Amino acid sequence: MRAARFPDHTDTDHTNTDHTNADHTNADPAGLARAASLAGRAGWTAQGGMPGPAGAGDRPGATVWVSPVRAAWQTAAAMGLEAREAPALREADCGRWGGLTYEQVAREEPEALAGWLADPHAAPHGGESLAALAERVGDWLEAVRESPTRPEAVTGRAQPGMVAGAVPSEVVVICDVGVIRAALGHALGLDPPSAARFDIAPLSFTELTVTRTGWRVAHVNRKVLSWSTPTRSARSSGSMT
C-alpha cells in the first residue's frame, strides 16, 4: 500500500523478519509499534500473550489465522499472537502486473487497467480475477463457519461430511484490504466492484458474526478498538502498515 503497487510473490516470503529493512515487503516499524499497542488494548500483550491459564500469545478461545504475506506475519508477531497460515487469504494473483506500480500500469496499459477495474471477471494481467478472489475468500469463510480449527479451513473449501463442532468464540484474521473487502462482499451478497467501495484503513478492525444462515456485519473499519465478545465471530485486521 505504501508503494501504491500491485502485490507480487516477494510479499509472501515471511522468513525475513528484519524489521529494519525499509523495502515494500515489510511492515514499517512505526506500524508494528502501533500493532503492539493495539494488542495491549485488546487484552493481549506484545510478549507473552494473555495472562492466566489461557497460555501465551493467544486470546482465550480464539483461533488466529494470517494470510501468507510477510507483513501479516510481522503484525501477528507484534501483537504476540501465535497464528496459523491460511493460503486462501492471499491477495489476488496479479500476474505480470505483480510488483508494478499502479501509475506504471495506468500509463503503459490504460485499456487493460480500465477493463480490469470495470469487469470483476477480467484478468488481463494473466493472473486471478477479482471474482475468483471473492469466490476463494467466500469458500474459506464458509469452511471456517462450519469448523474453524479443521485443516479444511486452510484450503478454503468445505469438505463433504464436515460437521460443526466445538467452535471457538472468536476467529481472528490478519490480512490485506482486498481479502477484507471480499469477505464483506460475501457476507452482504455484493459483487467485487460494490465491495471495493468499502474504505479499509491499516490496523483497522472489521467484524463479522455468524448467523444460522450466513454472516452479519458487526462493524467495518473500526480504528478505535472496543472488543465485545460475541458468541461466534470473525475479525479481520488490515495488515499492511
Rank of each mutant, 00 (worst) to 15 (best):
V64G: 04
G115H: 06
G49T: 05
G189Y: 13
H24G: 12
M1A: 14
S233V: 05
A118D: 00
A30E: 14
W73C: 12
G49H: 01
T213I: 04
M1Q: 13
G48E: 08
S169M: 06
Q104H: 13
A33F: 05
G178W: 06
L208P: 06
R84G: 07
H24T: 14
E142M: 10
L117W: 02
W44N: 10
R59S: 06
T229G: 08
L133S: 02
W65Q: 00
A218K: 09
V137L: 01
L32C: 08
A131W: 07
A201T: 14
T101P: 08
T211C: 07
T213M: 04
I200F: 02
L184Y: 07
R232S: 06
V154C: 12
A143I: 03
T25G: 08
S226G: 11
G48S: 11
L89M: 11
P193Q: 05
I200H: 05
W140A: 14
E109R: 11
A3I: 08
G95Q: 03
G127Y: 00
M162Q: 14
A187H: 00
A35S: 08
G156T: 02
A39S: 12
A164P: 09
E152D: 15
T17L: 13
A123L: 00
V163L: 12
A123Q: 01
P120T: 04
E142T: 12
R107M: 12
L89T: 03
S67F: 01
A123T: 04
A4S: 15
A196M: 12
A3R: 13
S67I: 07
R197W: 05
R232Q: 04
H121K: 14
V105G: 05
M79Q: 09
N26Y: 01
R212N: 12
T211Q: 06
F205Y: 10
A30F: 06
A187S: 03
T63V: 15
R216M: 12
V172D: 09
T63P: 01
D28R: 14
E170P: 03
A131P: 00
P192H: 01
Y102R: 13
H125W: 11
R222Y: 05
L208M: 08
V217Q: 02
A35C: 09
R84K: 13
R107H: 12
H121C: 11
A201D: 15
R232M: 05
T15W: 11
V163K: 13
V217G: 01
A62G: 06
L81E: 01
A143V: 03
A187N: 01
T211I: 10
C94V: 05
A143S: 10
V137H: 03
T45V: 10
T229H: 14
G115E: 07
P7G: 10
R136M: 02
N21L: 00
G55S: 04
D11M: 13
T63H: 11
L81F: 06
V179H: 05
P29Q: 07
R216Q: 14
R197T: 12
G52A: 12
V105S: 03
L133R: 07
A33N: 08
R90A: 07
R232W: 01
N26A: 11
V224G: 10
G115W: 02
G40H: 13
E85D: 13
E103R: 15
P110L: 06
A35N: 03
L184V: 10
T10L: 13
